[in-house]
Amino acid sequence: MAKSKLIQAVAITFAVFLAGCASQDTEETSGAETTETGTEAEDEGLGDLTLEVEQQEPVMEEEPMEEMEQDVTGEFEALLDQTLIYFDFDKSNVRTEFRTVLNAHAMNLVANPNMSVVLEGHADERGTREYNLALGERRAKSVADYLMLKGVSAGQIDTVSYGEEKPLALGSTEADYAENRRVEIKYQ
Rank of each mutant, 00 (worst) to 15 (best):
M1H: 14
A2I: 01
K3L: 06
K3E: 03
S4V: 07
S4K: 11
K5E: 08
I7G: 00
I7F: 08
I7R: 10
I7Y: 09
A9I: 00
A9L: 05
T13N: 06
A19S: 13
G20Y: 04
C21Q: 11
A22E: 08
S23C: 10
Q24C: 02
T26L: 12
E27G: 11
E27T: 07
T29F: 06
S30Q: 10
A32C: 00
T35G: 06
T35M: 05
T35R: 13
E36D: 03
G38T: 02
G38A: 13
A41W: 00
G45Q: 06
G47Q: 08
D48M: 03
D48T: 12
L49A: 11
L51S: 14
E52P: 00
V53Q: 09
V53L: 13
V53T: 07
V53K: 15
V53D: 05
E54T: 07
E54W: 04
P58Q: 10
P58F: 04
P58V: 04
M60Q: 10
M60E: 08
E61G: 14
E61A: 12
E62W: 12
E63S: 14
E63T: 02
M65E: 05
M65P: 14
E66Y: 09
E67G: 05
E67P: 00
G74L: 01
E75A: 15
A78T: 12
L79Y: 08
L80K: 08
D81T: 05
D81I: 00
Q82K: 15
Y86T: 13
F87G: 15
F87R: 11
F87N: 13
D88P: 04
F89L: 09
S92T: 07
V94K: 08
R95L: 13
F98R: 08
R99S: 02
T100W: 02
L102E: 01
N103R: 12
N103W: 00
N112A: 04
N112I: 01
N114W: 01
M115W: 04
M115H: 12
M115T: 11
V118R: 15
L119W: 10
G121S: 11
G121F: 03
H122R: 13
H122G: 04
A123L: 06
E125G: 14
G127C: 09
T128G: 15
R129M: 02
R129N: 09
Y131E: 15
A134M: 03
S142N: 11
V143P: 12
A144M: 11
Y146D: 02
Y146G: 12
Y146H: 09
L147Y: 02
L147F: 01
M148K: 15
L149C: 06
V152N: 01
Q156F: 01
I157K: 15
D158R: 15
T159N: 04
V160L: 12
V160Y: 08
S161W: 09
Y162W: 07
G163V: 03
E164G: 14
E165R: 14
K166P: 00
L168K: 13
S172K: 13
S172H: 09
T173M: 03
E174L: 11
E174P: 07
D176Q: 10
R181E: 00
R182D: 02
R182Y: 05
I185Y: 04
I185G: 09
K186T: 11
Y187I: 02
